[in-house]
Write a protein that binds this DNA or RNA. Structure first.
Length: 788
RNA sequence: GCGGACGUGGCGAAAUGGUAGACGCAAGGGACUUAAAAUCCCUCGGGGAGAAAUCCCUGUGCCGGUUCGAGUCCGGCCGUCCGCACCA
């Protein structure tokens, strides 16, 4: 297939065009970029009396090439940065590299290049591309997370967090790939198999380092209300992710005749204590201690639990999984009636990680519980009667009722509202006690789990810990930081190269001097990106990136811009990390990002040949065919089907290379088009027609400004007493454009800014056109003055 | 299942509760040109009246409501998209 570059399809311009009436973006942009570079005019000083403004776009992973999403993201940030600078603020607009991660290791395995060499080559290539975009970035503060000068601080913070009990070691169930010998994230498990190796994934208990993000659950939730310059959508997503719910912990006594040795009660968590008189069964998570105790004497139950464990994490399986239970034979005693017993099941849909890993089931008012009792024929009793319904005829069959109403069939609760009943149950059970402890206590539960950061990978920040046979877990002394990655590693066998390294992990224990072993796990790369915005503020970063503490003067980031895909993990981790940094004296603020903006994706049509292969936009020629459009392959003339407009992706080959666009049209045109048309938080469709329209406008504007300058040359030095009619019109248009553009940049409505500038150009064109029509008669000094 | 957002011309879209469709793309017509490209000018939601300037009716997914006035606010449907999801 012949690749036809965008340059070949574009109108003849730039280097090819020496036409005096044309703006040559290639020459002009290169000239200005060189001057900006030489004079270092975007380098920001910390010592500056002007008010600060910190604008930041999410830093890129150095994949090697920038894509249109980067162009859109960094153009938005750049417009804000230039605007705020023009408004007289001291603007910090830095750039760095999220440089650790798996792709570097994959490249090492596939192409025998060292991850470090691969990463730094990519950084060099992408930096060149970003520079060609004409971004007003302070490159003197550039950082790469794989630089020991960067991760040294991260290791220090890890140790400080450890001291503050914000890092702990915990046994956790993880997805283990037995072929690649590594832990996999849930997203890397596809249909129960490792995404690379295809091996059946096992659930393994492993010791992991975890960040105690749950210590801040309530605070992370409460503070969301104060982030008034964040999109509502992101705040909601985080709120749901943290998942707070209020309820009651209730201890059910177990009938000793039916219960294994050593177990006398079962604690459950419920948000519906009001429905306690509708209880029909109890259910345990398969890995609940009571399940395991019961299974010890019951091989069939043990088999059932084993089957539950093999159920994968894959979404499709969870969606379709049948609710299955196994009756343990154990009976639980109702907290309000010693003669009322409930069967205790082990059920595949109960999660050990949430609440206590055990529930009571009230089928009439919970759909899942209802499905369960209908399967096992346990029946149901409605206890909440909807308003206007006769309680004596209210029956539940297939659909649980979870609405409002009054209590029925519930003894002393009858007639109460749900809220009253919840309160009454809590009050009574709190007063009841068994074995010196109340039968129930109120509890707030969160869905949020602690953040496991251990990864069995080479290309990440080493965890600064030494394991000693005698002393146990020993932190690396501060004077020995950074713990740097060894460079002589090999990727020719599965597993973590740090683990296979002949010498690196063997060290003397810092405490006893005896034989010890380094932690060979590295940190999740989300750790690297959870504080990089703080690192940019270091006053000495350009000259001496060493031990100087960072300053708060720049924080928080005033405007952060990036993709919605980071709405939860990156942004939540960063919010946690900043709190942990504050707790350990690294920074003085809680919230890292005062303003957040999430931009939409860049999308493009897809093209498919008759044989079903994807074709790239650069390979396809589009022609008008009446109202329709017809596409053919440039190389062969073969017809191509125009398909859905989708996110630019390598797999569908519907990408457009920023380099080619910039070479063909210039960076300003690419940037202009990226901000035109669609609101910035929505998806924008990249089209050939659209970018050509932007290019035409750049030419038109250049011509208009040139003509206006000629007219302006007629202006006398002193301002005339009154402006003539066209001059007044022009003056109005100018001020209107200034006001609207300023206003809309503040609101980040870049598409409306673009429209305002089109309007201004139209007004300028009208005035100039009017002059040309009437010859020089109207070319008054007034107008010349206005043009100036 | 839970939560949320959105629905305006052929298309992308504008519009502090106050002249709906700014601006751009596409389309059509015209000027320039031997011709084309480029450029410039005009038209462009639907329907109707007029020779024309212009005017009238209608129109923001559907049904109601609040208001002097609703694309915008409220309630209910329909549709599309997104996030979370066995969370007790």
């Amino acid at each position: 297939m012949v690749l036809v570059s965008a340059a070949a399809k574009a109108p003849k311009l730039n280097a090819e065009s020496k036409h005096p009436d044309r703006y040559n973006a290639g020459d002009a942009e290169a000239r200005w970029q060189k001057i900006w570079d030489e004079r270092g005019i975007f380098a920001t000083k910390n010592a500056d009396p002007r008010p600060k403004y910190y604008v930041l776009e999410m830093f890129p992973y150095p994949s090697g090439r920038i894509h249109m999403g980067h162009v859109r993201n960094y153009t938005m940030g750049d417009v804000v940065a230039r605007y705020k600078r023009a408004m007289g603020l001291n603007v910090l607009h830095p750039m760095g590299w999220d440089a650790f991660g798996m792709p570097a290791e994959n490249a090492a395995m596939e192409r025998k290049v060292h991850p470090k060499a691969w990463t730094y080559d990519n950084i060099a290539a992408m930096k060149k591309q970003l520079k060609s975009m004409g971004l007003s970035l302070d490159w003197s503060r550039e950082i790469a997370t794989c630089d020991p000068a960067y991760y040294k601080h991260q290791q220090k913070m890890f140790l400080d967090f450890l001291g503050a009990k914000l890092v702990e070691r915990e046994k956790r169930k993880v997805n283990w790939d037995p072929v690649d010998q590594t832990v996999l994230a849930n997203e890397q498990v596809i249909d129960g198999r490792g995404w690379r190796s295809g091996a059946l994934v096992e659930q393994r208990e492993m010791s992991q380092w975890v960040f105690k993000i749950t210590k801040y659950s309530q605070d992370l939730l409460d503070a969301l209300d104060r982030l008034d310059r964040w999109p509502e959508k992101v705040r909601l997503m985080q709120k749901n992710w943290i998942g707070r719910s209020e309820g009651l912990l209730v201890r059910f006594a177990l009938d000793p005749k039916t219960t294994p040795q050593g177990e006398s009660e079962l604690e459950i968590f419920t948000t519906r204590p009001d429905t306690l008189f509708g209880a029909k069964f109890m259910a345990l998570a398969p890995d609940h201690p009571l399940s395991l105790a019961a299974a010890a004497k019951n091989p069939a139950l043990a088999r059932f639990i084993e089957e539950c464990r093999h159920r994968g994490a894959a979404q499709a399986e969870i969606d379709t999984a049948e609710k299955l239970g196994f009756d343990t034979g154990i009976k639980a005693i109702h907290p309000f009636d010693p003669n009322w017993t409930l069967p205790v099941y082990v059920a595949n849909f109960i999660l050990m990680e949430y609440g206590t890993g055990a529930i009571f089931g009230c089928p009439a008012h919970d759909q899942r519980d209802l499905d369960f009792v209908n399967k096992y024929d346990l029946g149901n009793v409605p206890v909440v009667c909807p308003p206007g319904q006769d309680p004596s005829t209210f029956v539940i069959t297939d659909t649980a009722y979870d609405g409002d109403g009054r209590m029925i069939n519930s003894r002393f609760l009858d007639g109460m509202t749900i809220a009253e009943a919840k309160e009454e149950v809590a009050r009574r059970l709190e007063k009841d006690s068994r074995g010196n402890r109340p039968v129930a206590q109120r509890q707030v539960n969160f869905r949020l789990r602690d953040w496991g950061i251990s990864r069995q990978r080479y290309w990440g920040c080493p965890i600064p810990i030494i394991h000693c046979e005698k002393c146990g877990v020993v932190p690396v002394p501060e004077k020995d930081l950074p713990v740097t990655l060894p460079e002589d590693v090999s990727f020719d066998r599965p597993g973590n190269p740090l683990d296979h390294h002949p010498t690196w992990k063997h060290v003397a224990c810092p405490q006893c001097g005896g034989k010890a072993r380094r932690e060979t796990d590295t940190m999740d790369t989300f750790v690297d990106s959870s504080w990089y915005f703080e690192r940019f503020t270091d006053p000495w970063i350009a000259t001496a990136p060493t031990d100087v503490p960072m300053v708060d003067a720049w924080m928080p980031v005033d405007q952060y811009i990036g993709g919605i895909e980071h709405a939860i993990l990156h942004l939540l981790y960063s919010r946690f990390f900043t709190r942990a940094m504050k707790a350990t004296g690294h920074v003085g603020v809680d919230e890292p990002f005062a303003g957040l903006f999430t931009q939409g994706m860049v999308v493009h049509e897809t093209y498919r040949t008759e044989s079903g292969e994807w074709a790239a936009p650069a390979e396809v020629k589009i022609e008008a065919d009446g109202d329709a459009r017809r596409a053919t392959l440039i190389a062969t003339g073969e017809p191509v089907a125009i398909g859905a407009i989708e996110k630019m992706s390598k797999s569908k080959r519907n990408t457009v290379d920023p380099d080619e666009i910039i070479a063909a049209y210039g960076a300003d045109v690419a940037r202009w088009f990226m901000l035109s048309d669609s609101p910035p938080d929505r998806d924008v469709e990249w089209t050939e027609r659209g970018v050509q329209g932007a290019w035409r406008f750049s030419q038109r504007l250049w011509r208009l400004v040139g003509e206006a300058a000629e007219i302006a040359a007629f202006a006398p030095a002193a301002r005339p007493a009154a402006f003539s009619e066209p001059a007044t019109r022009l003056r109005k248009a100018t001020h209107r454009a200034l006001a609207r553009v300023s206003d809309d940049i503040e609101k980040l409505h870049f598409n409306v800014c673009v429209a305002s500038i089109y309007e201004f150009a139209n007004a300028l064109n009208d005035v100039i056109g009017g002059i040309e029509e009437h010859g020089d008669a109207k070319l008054t000094p007034d107008l010349g003055w206005a043009m100036r």
